[in-house]
């Protein structure tokens, strides 16, 4: 399999972009950083499908397309379904030998936002995982329905202000905890499941290459800070991702064959969740005296999760 070198950034930068500019994502959006990195870490042919979401509406504004590969969009929920259908068709035609280039390696990738992964496309994704197709599903997790005006999704963390879980005198924003999608996907028996972040470009590129190489359904959850709905300055996208990984709100880890857990990044100087929250407008209300206890609760949850991950890494289960 042809794989491009990711030894260091200089070598990585010799790859030619297959995701073109002049899409209409917000300035400073992390979605395009993640997509570019996936498409740069391989020179195989790609067949990509997108769920409805920011990525889909901004990269396919008629009459333009930003994709230099095959790209399909059908509905909100069925990127996993459409890409697995394409994969089966490719397999059959390869067997019959009626492809244009029968030996060219082709990789199948589906992109979804957190709304279409955690909520609306969940049973389609679950079905595709169960059927065991050879594809990679990448969730661009920006913790809300950013495309339609920032409604809550089941990826929104406790205490965040969204347009349908508003903070005010009687409410501190969303009250329910975030769904642990990585564990759910690992429980499907997937050969490779990971949570990655764009600021650690090397672990992310390695994770993408591994997922593309491994045969079977792979799932990757990526952190994608949303400057519009998280309410921070567009230039701070990477700084905020640093805060997210250092505060362990988004631990970076992989699970191989649903039992072998590896932590891919251990912050040398872990910071508190408070520091991460202070950098974003959506947590502004938590710093009022009546809601300060929420920050402590979130910190307790994050510590417990990090403890669990370390124990799982040690015990290999």
């Amino acid at each position: 399999m042809a794989i491009t070198s990711i030894k260091n950034l200089k070598e990585f930068s010799t790859n030619n972009d297959r995701f073109e500019g002049a899409h209409t994502l917000c300035p400073g959006c992390a979605h395009s950083m993640i997509v570019r990195e996936l498409m740069n870490c391989t020179d195989d042919n790609l067949v990509i499908s997108s769920n409805t979401g920011c990525l889909e509406v901004s990269t396919a504004v008629y009459p333009f397309t930003s994709w230099d590969t095959s790209w399909i969009h059908i509905g909100f929920e069925n990127a996993a379904t459409s890409v697995t259908a394409a994969q089966v068709m490719h397999k059959v035609r390869k067997k019959k030998g009626n492809l244009k280039d029968n030996d060219a390696p082709v990789k199948f990738v589906a992109f979804g936002g957190d709304g279409s992964t955690y909520d609306i496309g969940f049973q389609w994704l679950s079905g595709a995982m169960e059927r065991g197709h050879d594809f990679t599903y990448i969730c661009l997790d920006n913790e809300n329905y950013a495309n339609t005006g920032g409604q809550r999704s089941s990826a929104t963390p406790v205490g965040a202000h969204t347009s349908t879980a508003q903070a005010g005198t009687h409410s501190y924003g969303k009250k329910q905890k975030k769904k642990d999608i990585v564990s759910i996907m690992a429980a499907h028996g997937s050969p490779y499941v990971a949570q990655l972040a764009p600021n650690k470009w090397k672990s992310m590129a390695k994770g993408f290459q591994k997922a593309l190489e491994v045969e079977g359904p792979c799932f990757i959850n990526t952190v994608s800070p949303c400057c519009t709905e998280w309410k921070f300055d567009p230039k701070d996208t990477i700084n905020l991702t640093d805060l997210a990984t250092d505060s362990l709100m988004f631990p970076i880890y992989e699970i191989i064959d649903s039992h072998e857990l590896n932590i891919l990044y251990r912050p040398k100087n872990p910071i508190s969740v408070e520091e991460y929250m202070a950098a974003q407008g959506r947590y502004k209300h938590l710093f009022k005296p009546q809601y300060r206890h929420i920050i402590e609760e979130v910190q307790k949850d994050v510590d417990a999760k990090w403890d669990l991950l370390q124990r799982r890494e040690e015990a290999r289960l």
Binding site: L9, E11, F12, D17, E20, G21, P27, G28, R36
Partner: peptide, 19 residues
């Protein structure tokens, strides 16, 4: 030529050729 800007540019707007 550290290429940090290349890897994190969201709009594929950094022109890098031959490192």
């Amino acid at each position: 030529d550290c290429q940090n800007c290349w890897v994190w540019c969201p709009d594929s707007s950094i022109l890098s050729r031959d490192k």
